[in-house]
């Protein structure tokens, strides 16, 4: 696997290509990803979410500066919605981060959701792995920022940064309700705007009242990403959180859950593929669907019927 070797030597082009192949579900990507597995599991994975217009990309842009000063190589996955009608997307989050585009220690990749709900794109998990193997640490995942669905981000990330902003009105209230429990670090961006202190106080109050006490008390910080003010503290808080979960054992639990989920997903995919390609005779699947549709058969019995020969064979 030439592409794997190139990637492990730090070739950004190889990583970029492999992410595309994983996104397009190219069969060759599976081989490469399995070869890479041993080289992953090192990076801190940070999810960044918040309502549209909060300045997520700008916060990340400034955070990258801080990480680079500390000598970290940073991977960024910026996710934008894919149109459900055309399948197309304009991916523009990186506009904010273009000052880092020629820095070899920074890898930015834009991804479309491609019909995936949950705020993370389908190829994200693979892309995280690939950047991990490329030696990026941390890996920052910027979500679509569409509200409730952001909860999905927790599944992939070690630390979740929530970017808020004063004065977005009612939307933010609805947004807040959905993200309080998933945030590990909160930052109120555009802190020079009117209402910033109020937004901080509100968030703190909500965190105290709406939540079970947690061993990690999420800090609520203020920043002005436009000029970078307060971003150093945000990065410090993310570092502390990572240290905390490592020490408390929460990281192991998260990683274990991720591994389990990944394994289950692979298994499910493989099984479904095996069954539809190997077990079912040509046209049989469609015929079963037709009978289910006509209420001549129920889906449970149909599955039972299909799996019978496999179960007998064991």
């Amino acid at each position: 696997m030439e592409i794997v070797e190139r990637l492990l030597k730090g070739d950004a082009g190889a990583a970029a290509r492999l992410i595309s192949m994983a996104e397009d579900e190219d069969p060759r990507a599976v081989k490469a990803l399995s070869a890479l597995h041993a080289h992953t599991g090192k990076a801190q994975i940070i999810g960044v979410t918040g309502p549209p217009g909060a300045g997520k990309s700008t916060v990340i842009d400034q955070a990258v500066k801080v990480y680079r000063k500390k000598g970290c190589k940073v991977g960024i996955l910026a996710i934008d919605p894919t149109s459900p009608f055309t399948g197309g997307a304009i991916l523009g989050d990186r506009i904010r981060m273009q000052q880092h585009s020629t820095d070899p220690g920074v890898f930015i990749r834009s991804m479309g959701t491609r019909g995936w709900t949950g705020g993370l794109s389908k190829g994200t998990a693979s892309a995280i792995k690939i950047l991990d193997a490329l030696g990026m640490d941390p890996i920052i995942v910027e979500t679509v920022g569409a509200g409730q669905s952001e909860v999905e981000i927790v599944r992939s990330a070690h630390s979740v940064l929530i970017v808020e902003v004063p004065g977005l009105g009612d939307d933010i209230q609805a947004f807040k309700a959905g993200i309080l429990e998933i945030g590990d670090v909160f930052v109120v961006n555009k802190a020079d705007r009117e209402g910033a202190d109020k937004a901080v106080a509100e968030l703190r109050a909500m965190l105290e009242t709406c939540q079970e006490p947690r061993a990690w008390a999420p800090p609520v910080l203020k920043a002005s990403a436009r000029d970078g003010a307060g971003i150093g503290e945000v990065v410090d808080a993310l570092d502390s959180h990572f240290a905390f979960i490592k020490q408390s054992g929460a990281k192991d639990l998260k990683d274990r859950a991720s591994a389990e989920r990944e394994f289950m997903e692979v298994l499910r995919d493989r099984l479904a593929k095996y069954i539809t390609e190997k077990v079912v005779r040509k046209g049989e699947f469609d015929a079963l669907v037709e009978r289910i549709l006509r209420r001549q058969l129920d889906p449970y019995s149909a599955a039972e019927k299909l799996l019978e020969p496999i179960e007998k064979g064991k």
Partner: peptide, 26 residues
Amino acid sequence: RDAGFEVIYTGLHQTPEQIVSTAVQE
């Protein structure tokens, strides 16, 4: 986009170096 492509937009004022590096990463 409306024709179903994924379009990455760089924004304004890009150097050729930025454009090429972006093209490779993307």
